[in-house]
Design a protein around this nucleic acid. Structure first.
Length: 259
DNA sequence: ATGACAATCAGAGATTGA
């Protein structure tokens, strides 16, 4: 089973690029971030026509996450637990009913800039709630994954120019500590389980010729529970998508699971 | 130190992003 994650940076602006990628890459499941659309405006028929079940958790103007799946989806929930007053649409869960059911969590972790400040406080508080949900997933001892735009550069090798990210919310020590606290609960980071070394990025800014200079960062990740990691066959960042027509600033990343 | 670029909402320019 091929499960992909893709921050599309706006569904309206990305219809052509997104459908072209779906038709080429043919993921069984696609976890989308930054749909920047309310549920009612999401063009679900575009995907239903391609055989996908569609579940969205949208919001006006920004944020918004969705799951497309060729397999049935069960027990869909929306919103990250832990703060009833949080109205930002950044989390959706569903169980994909394949050979082995897999709990899928799609996330769009807050950017957090400028740091320090209230947006950074929100990011760190959100990550604490994420850690709590992650502990529950581990305790269930079932195949589960959390995938999406984490807005975290885990290590210096995950940026072309790490010095320029030193004080940024994506790479500040508190951000990386919060990330490690989650990973070290017992998750497998799928990309680093299959590929080592520098030069692997999932985001290139639209500005200052970042793509042409390969000035990227790796911020889109898959975390797998042990029962899910046992099924891991491969993890690939689809870098070439960044060079397409009217691209997102992120590219898709996918895992191949024996499930 | 700033801006560069893109998207949304709205219907110009502010806001958000990373």
């Amino acid at each position: 089973m091929k499960i992909a994650s893709f921050n599309i940076n706006g569904i309206k602006a990305r219809i052509d690029a997104l459908t072209a990628w779906l038709d080429e890459s043919q993921p069984d499941v696609a976890i989308l971030q930054e749909i920047k659309s309310v549920d009612e405006a999401f063009p679900r028929e575009l995907f239903e026509d391609r055989g996908y079940n569609v579940e969205t958790h949208g919001q006006k103007g920004f944020n918004g996450v969705a799951i497309l799946s060729k397999l049935p989806l069960e027990d869909v929930t929306r919103g990250l637990p832990g703060d009833a007053s949080d109205e930002q649409a950044r989390w959706i869960e569903a169980t994909v009913m394949g050979k082995k059911p897999i709990r899928i969590c799609g996330l769009y972790l807050p950017n957090g800039n400028p740091a320090p400040g209230p947006k950074y406080d929100y990011k760190l508080a959100w990550m604490e709630r994420l850690r709590a949900r992650a502990e529950e997933l581990l305790a269930a001892e079932e195949p589960a994954l959390m995938a999406g735009d984490y807005n975290i550069i885990p290590q210096a090798e995950d940026a072309k120019t790490p010095d320029s990210w030193k004080d940024d919310a994506l790479h500040r020590p508190e951000s990386r500590e919060a990330w490690r606290k989650i990973v070290n609960l017992g998750f497998t980071e799928a990309f680093r389980a299959t590929t080592q070394g520098p030069g692997h990025y999932s985001f290139w800014d639209y500005q200052a010729g970042a793509w042409d200079r390969d000035n990227g960062i790796r911020i889109d990740h898959f975390l797998l529970t042990p029962q899910c990691a046992d099924l891991l066959v491969d993890c690939v960042i689809e870098r070439e998508v960044r060079g397409g027509q009217k691209p997102s600033d992120h590219v898709p990343i996918y895992v191949e699971l024996d499930a």
